[in-house]
Design a protein around this nucleic acid. Sequence first.
DNA 1: CGGAATGTTGATTATATTCAACTGTTGTGG
DNA 2: CCACAACAGTTGAATATAATCAACATTCCG
Lengths: 244, 244
Amino acid sequence: MQTVLLMSAPVAGNGGGRDPRLLEGLFSNLPLFRDIPQRSIAHVAGQSRTQRIKRGAALCRKGERLPGVIAMAYGSLKLALRRTGGDEKVVRFLGPNETFGEASILLDRPCPVDVVALADSMLGVIPAAPLQRLLENDCTFARNLVRILGARFLDLLGEIEATVQQNGVQRLAHYLDSLAEPNGDPDTWIVHLPANKTTIAARLGVTKETMSRLLRELTNRELISVSRREILIRDRARLAQLAG
Amino acid sequence: MQTVLLMSAPVAGNGGGRDPRLLEGLFSNLPLFRDIPQRSIAHVAGQSRTQRIKRGAALCRKGERLPGVIAMAYGSLKLALRRTGGDEKVVRFLGPNETFGEASILLDRPCPVDVVALADSMLGVIPAAPLQRLLENDCTFARNLVRILGARFLDLLGEIEATVQQNGVQRLAHYLDSLAEPNGDPDTWIVHLPANKTTIAARLGVTKETMSRLLRELTNRELISVSRREILIRDRARLAQLAG
DNA sequence: CGGAATGTTGATTATATTCAACTGTTGTGG
DNA sequence: CCACAACAGTTGAATATAATCAACATTCCG
């Protein structure tokens, strides 16, 4: 642990600050900077800043300019599209060591989604300029970006596939299956939902009411049991089968 | 016009063949190879082949390995996801000088969609090896890919946004508006549908029956008139307003 | 403790699908 | 060139799925 003496320089009241050490450590573990020389990473970190953001606050709204590529240190964010009627479709959750905004920043396009904190969070903000320069000068960085953007593209296509060819129950079953983690008991699995049920509903493209009914449906079939954000998978095989 | 003497070397019965000249010309105009030295393009062309494909035939099925990045010379393809019940969701149409498969090929992933010819077509097939080599050795190529993949990603996100927050009429209105071309008359616009109505329906994510009803709806409101694949936009302002 | 946020439930409604029958169009081989 | 089969499009009725509306219950936090 760093002492207060080493802690970051002036932190603005708005939650922004500088802390090149911390940023360099954060960036070094990102796929974005894989195999990039440490001095390049340090240089980018020197141009970047940290930002704290409170649960419920928006880092950026759809259509605004993103301040830079976002690299999560801790907490969690949601990326969401607004829907008619005030509700939303969550496109992705963002947790520690994940990044967002590469495409928007490098193509100089406005932010395609709302970016909102689900919990008090801290993240690094890497402005466009040093990334553009790195893209010009370091082929490894360009190749990292090709991998990242390619994977994002294919993931998104997978999302479309799921929403287009599966109904609510199937999507929920698949989602739960994808989050299943081993339990003490070898027969059952546990899922800890990464957000509240309303937000998970938005992630699955249904309303909270529908989500509630879907969970009850699976509970009635004795496939799962629900307790707050903890879901016990009682019959993973049948659940997976349901997912298609 | 080339004479028979200059025409491509042995063309296999399956529609595949070699024609480095033609391929080099085709590739030179692609964003993929922008600012790439002609000799590199020629080298890639030397490793590539042409392929003819008949209307209705599949170039590749979802889950299979793509033979390479596809570069359209003439004709048109659809990229589609299969849905339960045998119908499909068309993700993209592909016309002359457009490319497909960069992400799948470079990340060595299976083809994420069915690729089917809507008309007799010819295309270039660029196998993975020379592209991988170019990616390793030519930063410009890597940067081209970053632009292309980034744009594809943002386009796809736009698609999701449209399907998620607009109903059928709105999507159709927006789609027609996006295809509108000037007419003789300055008050009206014309749209030539790039495929038959069933396929356009699949592009918009509705059934052909719904598509038919939507078109009639817009016709009844005197916003358009329909004649085969030709659609006359009679009131573009109101149509665009409808699109939201 | 109390108010705000989150979640549940039932009744009703909107939107588009499915099914079925029918019409129109196109392209092919006799 | 026509007959005809395959394909494409239209229309109506019944149905499925999930959204919306409204009321209430529960949980979370300050």
